[in-house]
């Protein structure tokens, strides 16, 4: 099994983070993984994206031309990456901020009102985790427990108190598409 995903959005929406989270979780489940960020003259509020491969086989290209999975957290990301998605692939888009409908009809379109749900949970910053939850449920690529254990390993000190909120957001995302 190989899953290739592109995670895209504004800088600050946490797309790099959920891409890394997926890669780390894949690694802890014994899979082969790679994570490659867009880089260069980037700025806060500009667009950002990363490519993640999770596979049972050694990863060939870390650069993806036909992703199985696309996360679009804002409209420019949707417009840029929707045409690349593999036929039958999954498109998760942030319907709180994107008010157009994806054009493709040969893909699974999964709208997630990520910002609205995150705000209901009390912190708009966990919008990315809501989407991550939906991905976990839909793809089954890694387990929720593994993702939570990665959060516990990486969120220490001041951030420890945010683990529960992030877990709640993941679970909300799972319920939404369950």
């Amino acid at each position: 099994m190989t899953l290739e995903g592109i995670f895209a959005g504004f800088g600050g929406q946490g797309v790099m983070l959920i891409g890394q989270l997926l890669a780390y979780a894949g690694m802890y489940e014994g899979k082969q993984v790679s994570w490659f960020p867009s880089y260069g003259p980037e700025m806060r509020g500009g667009t950002a994206n990363c490519s993640v491969v999770v596979s049972d086989e050694p990863v060939g290209s870390p650069v993806i031309s036909e992703p199985d999975l696309l996360v679009a957290m804002n409209r420019p990301s949707l417009e840029k990456f929707e045409p690349m998605l593999k036929s039958g692939g999954m498109l998760f888009y942030n319907s709180s901020l994107i008010h157009v409908t994806p054009k493709r009809t040969d893909i699974q379109v999964i709208p997630i009102p990520a910002n609205d749900i995150a705000t209901e949970l009390g912190n708009a910053k966990v919008a990315n985790m809501v989407v991550m939850g939906a991905i976990l449920k839909k793809t089954g690529v890694v387990k929720l427990e593994t993702v939570v254990s990665v959060l516990k390993k990486t969120m220490t000190g001041n951030k420890e108190k945010l683990i529960a909120l992030n877990q709640q957001a993941l679970e909300k995302g799972m319920e939404l598409v369950g």
């Binding site: 890394q20 890669a23 690694m27 082969q32 993984v33 790679s34 994570w35 490659f36 960020p37 880089y39 990863v59 870390p62 650069v63």
Partner: peptide, 10 residues
């Protein structure tokens, strides 16, 4: 090259 420098792997 920049890709190998920037990418993450286990």
């Amino acid at each position: 090259d920049g890709l190998l420098g920037q990418m993450m792997e286990p």
